[in-house]
């Protein structure tokens, strides 16, 4: 970020106006962002530390945590593979309809989370296209873990790719072509040349992908069936506690996810400060 010098000049605002603008921006952000974040922790501890610890260590919470980690552990690596493949194909080669492909990869971002869950119900639900076939083979997708994983992959599909595509396009093809003409295999070129070049961008994409995967609510809510202890992820567990008027427990569990969000923000900011030159444009 570059900015003109702060000294009084005809192209700078008077001091009182600067203070007014900074003050109102901070007030707005404080009310709109900082206060909700603080509320999560304060409300979570409202009934005391013991109740907080009980809320996050009861069996339903633990199984929700385990399920959230499981779903993310499947969805995020798959998205890494897909994102690397897509960015390699798009950035290292020329072909027609490239921009169409990029738009299609971004498509899940413009679909409502609820619709993202609904589409898998239409395919794999009891009345769905493959419903009868799945029932005959005793495979359950909807109201079971596979449905949660599918919906999560859909929701997080663009994260890794949209970070890597512009980054790999910026870096061009010369380094890969040099390695290949010196006799390196395609795989070792990817491993020793491309991957080190994009590692921070990849980490950035994975960070955002993981935060969304662990926090997704709408899409998994539609496919989960809310079976306590079986198909409840952490966000769904929060909803159940909240709807049972068990507010302190709901906020206690929510504080775990708020903690994850804070860690994500800190790591993301660190990447932006330390490796700004090795990331693609920061805009979503």
């Amino acid at each position: 970020m570059t900015r003109p010098p702060a000294s009084a000049s005809p192209t700078a605002e008077p001091r009182w106006l600067r203070w007014l603008l900074v003050g109102s921006a901070l007030l707005f952000l404080g009310l709109n962002l900082a206060l909700p974040l603080a509320a999560v922790f304060v409300e979570g501890l409202r009934k005391g530390l013991a109740a907080y610890v009980t809320a996050i260590s009861e069996p339903d919470a633990i199984s929700a945590l385990r399920l959230t980690l499981t779903v993310a552990a499947i969805a995020v690596p798959l998205n890494i593979v897909i994102g690397l493949a897509a960015s390699w194909a798009i950035a290292k080669f020329d072909f027609r309809f490239k921009s169409v492909l990029v738009t299609l990869i971004d498509l899940p971002f413009s679909v409502s989370p609820v619709v993202s869950g609904l589409i898998y119900v239409l395919l794999f639900g009891l009345q769905g296209w493959f419903g009868a076939a799945l029932r005959d083979h005793d495979i359950q997708v909807i109201f079971a873990v596979p449905g949660l994983v599918l919906a999560t992959i859909f929701i997080t599909f663009p994260f890794v790719a949209r970070e890597l595509i512009p980054l790999m396009e910026e870096q061009g093809r010369e380094e890969e072509e040099a390695a290949l003409s010196l006799g390196a295999s395609g795989l070792s070129t990817f491993w020793h040349v491309t991957l080190p070049n994009v590692r921070w961008g990849l980490l950035y994409g994975v960070l955002l992908c993981n935060a969304r995967a662990m926090g997704e609510f709408g899409a998994v809510s539609v496919v989960s069936g809310h079976i306590r202890g079986r198909t409840n992820t952490l966000p769904l567990h929060i909803e159940i506690l909240y709807n049972e008027y068990n507010f302190a427990a709901a906020f206690a569990v929510a504080s775990l996810l708020a903690g994850l969000a804070l860690v994500t923000l800190v790591l993301k900011s660190l990447l932006e400060w330390r490796f700004a030159g090795q990331l693609a444009g920061k805009v979503h």
Partner: peptide, 21 residues
């Protein structure tokens, strides 16, 4: 960094927090 909070905070958490406010 805080500006990106809505990208990182799960929507359900944001929902109950805003309701508490």
């Amino acid at each position: 960094a805080l500006v990106d909070l809505p990208f990182a905070l799960p929507t359900a958490v944001a929902g109950i927090a805003l309701t508490a406010l």
